[in-house]
């Protein structure tokens, strides 16, 4: 896809006790002695969907953040950004260094090419564990706990209405009134 270098922060020492606090502290430990102009993160993870790690990291590094961005222009140290605010577009100006989280529409990711895939195998991948980051297990104890995980109750199979459009509509209105009670 185009990255020059990759680093893996290994959470193996932490077993299951990992939450957004833990991850952001690990990232902070990694970034704090590095030089950077901009940190790009995802908007939310598809599985957990919380969207906490990136803003937490920005706070720990004491840099500004702009979340859910859809356009990014950088000139010198000035960034002009468009962000999605529940459908409206906000135009934001700020200075680097900066953390942003990316929303759909920011750009079209390129498709990895075969030569690119071959070259990727030769790129460096560094793995860092807690010792490498100068962190101690005890400082990273999660600040939330998952009590339970469950599936929603199986949804009753829906009703497919029959007949001509007018009959289907009539039946639907009746069901929405008497059964679903939403109108």
């Amino acid at each position: 896809m185009g990255a020059d270098k990759a680093v893996l922060l290994d959470t193996e020492d932490l077993e299951d006790d990992v939450d957004h606090y833990t991850i952001s502290e690990m990232l902070n430990a990694f970034f704090k002695d590095k030089e950077y102009d901009i940190i790009l993160g995802g908007n939310v993870a598809v599985d957990d969907g919380a969207g906490q790690v990136a803003p937490r990291l920005a706070e720990l590094l004491d840099i500004n953040q702009v979340t859910t961005i859809t356009k990014l222009d950088i000139e010198g140290t000035k960034a002009t950004i468009e962000r999605d605010v529940e459908g409206d577009v906000e135009v934001v100006e700020t200075e680097l260094p900066l953390l942003v989280t990316c929303q759909q529409g920011l750009n079209e990711p390129r498709y990895p090419s075969l030569p690119g895939i071959m070259k990727a195998k030769k790129k460096p991948l560094e793995t860092l564990d807690l010792d490498d980051l100068g962190l101690d297990e005890d400082e990273l104890e999660a600040k939330t706990k998952t009590v339970d995980r469950f599936l929603p109750p199986e949804k009753q199979a829906g009703k497919k209405l029959e007949g001509e459009p007018a009959q289907q509509v009539e039946e639907l209105i009746k069901l929405l009134k008497t059964e679903a009670k939403v109108i």
Binding site: Y21, V46, D47, K143, K145, F150
Partner: peptide, 13 residues
């Protein structure tokens, strides 16, 4: 998982 499952969580710290 985008609403396909749920979890119960509490704050411990």
């Amino acid at each position: 998982y985008s609403g396909k499952a749920f979890e119960k969580k509490s704050v411990t710290g």
